[in-house]
Amino acid sequence: MDTNDKNFEDQAKETAKNLEQEAQKTANEFKEGWNQATNNTNNLKLVCGLLGIFLGTFGIHKFVLGYTKEGVIQLIAGIVTCGFAGIIGLIEGIIYLTKTDEEFYQTYQVGKKPWF
């Protein structure tokens, strides 16, 4: 093996080592941040909380969270009970607003808890 081959082999090993370190760093950053609440969660919490309090009879807060089936149930219950089922939305809106951003994110976006 001549000197050029040895230098090329050393450079290839160094490059591979650098790429491995970079990939490991990126993987660690992804693991740390993938399940964290973002600023959008705070906005979603506020929006859903207020919608639950003011328009809970129509289940709009459920639709915003992506709970279509539960939103339809809330809407039908609100119509059938002439708005009395809106108490559920009121309670849920207050619960949403009293949770921390992280609790809200973990419970309603990650855990997909549809009621209370």
Rank of each mutant, 00 (worst) to 15 (best):
D2H: 14
T3H: 10
D5Y: 13
F8P: 11
D10M: 12
D10A: 15
A12N: 12
K13R: 15
E14Q: 15
E14R: 06
T15W: 11
A16W: 04
A16H: 09
K17M: 12
K17Y: 15
N18Y: 07
N18G: 01
N18S: 05
L19T: 02
E20L: 13
E22A: 14
A23Y: 03
Q24Y: 08
Q24T: 15
K25G: 08
K25N: 15
T26A: 12
T26D: 10
A27C: 06
A27H: 10
A27I: 03
N28Y: 01
N28E: 06
E29G: 07
F30D: 06
K31R: 15
N35L: 04
N35T: 04
N35G: 07
N35E: 08
A37P: 01
N42F: 11
N42S: 07
N42H: 06
N43G: 13
K45C: 03
K45W: 00
K45F: 01
V47H: 14
G49V: 00
I53H: 06
L55I: 14
G56W: 01
G56Y: 01
T57C: 10
F58I: 03
F58T: 00
G59I: 00
G59K: 00
I60G: 03
H61V: 12
H61W: 11
H61Y: 12
H61E: 10
K62D: 10
G66F: 03
G66E: 05
Y67D: 01
E70Q: 13
G71R: 02
V72K: 13
V72P: 04
V72S: 01
V72T: 05
V72L: 09
I73S: 13
I73T: 05
I73K: 09
Q74A: 02
Q74T: 02
I76K: 13
I76Q: 07
A77V: 01
A77I: 03
I79R: 09
V80C: 09
V80K: 10
T81W: 02
C82H: 10
F84Y: 11
F84S: 12
F84H: 06
G86E: 08
I87L: 05
I88R: 03
G89K: 12
I91A: 06
E92R: 07
I94F: 05
I95N: 14
T98L: 13
T98S: 15
T98N: 13
T98C: 14
K99P: 01
D101P: 05
E102W: 09
F104I: 04
T107S: 02
T107Y: 07
Q109V: 05
V110I: 04
G111C: 02
K113A: 05
W115E: 00
F116S: 03
